[in-house]
Nucleic acid binder design. Structure first.
Length: 129
DNA sequence: CGCTTGACCGGAA
DNA sequence: ATTCCGGCCAAGC
């Protein structure tokens, strides 16, 4: 089966970047695998095409091996759902504890997706009353 | 040594 | 909305 697990030249170094990004996600926010892929820079020697095709899975691989101090529960897939099969219930519960609500097992990304380290939080508040 | 199995995503049918 | 496909790597059994 073609799964496309083309790993980066220095896997460990890329994983470190992923973990560093995830550690910055604040409580009550989430990020997607693809978002993290786009936020990080492609390793040298990897074309933009190959990076685009494979890096989301690199992020998944990195999360599968993340250290304890990484808030892994805040990383979900592009559909706003939990990707992991085993441990999905725990991940959902952790997010609920942090105030991230689910609708039909899906997170509203428009509301909860973290916009990244360089931007201010919620510039507009009060539009919904 | 060989087969199985991954915490993904975007585009196409 | 749903299913299928390409991507073609490694650790574990």
């Amino acid at each position: 089966m073609s799964t496309g697990f083309v790993l980066p030249p220095n896997t460990q170094a890329y994983y470190e970047q992923v973990w560093a990004f995830v550690r910055q996600i604040p409580v009550g926010k989430v990020a997607t695998y693809g978002q993290i892929r786009q936020a990080l820079t492609a390793p040298e020697g990897i074309s933009a095409d190959d990076y685009q095709l494979s890096a989301s899975r690199w992020v998944g691989s990195a999360m599968a091996a993340c250290p304890d101090d990484v808030p892994w529960q805040r990383v979900i897939n592009a559909q706003g759902k939990i990707s992991r099969q085993v441990g999905a219930a725990e991940q959902k519960q952790r997010l609920l504890d942090e105030g991230v609500l689910f609708t039909r097992d899906k997170v509203d990304l428009d509301r909860y997706q973290w916009q990244g380290p360089g931007q201010s939080e919620q510039p507009i508040q009060g539009l919904l009353f």
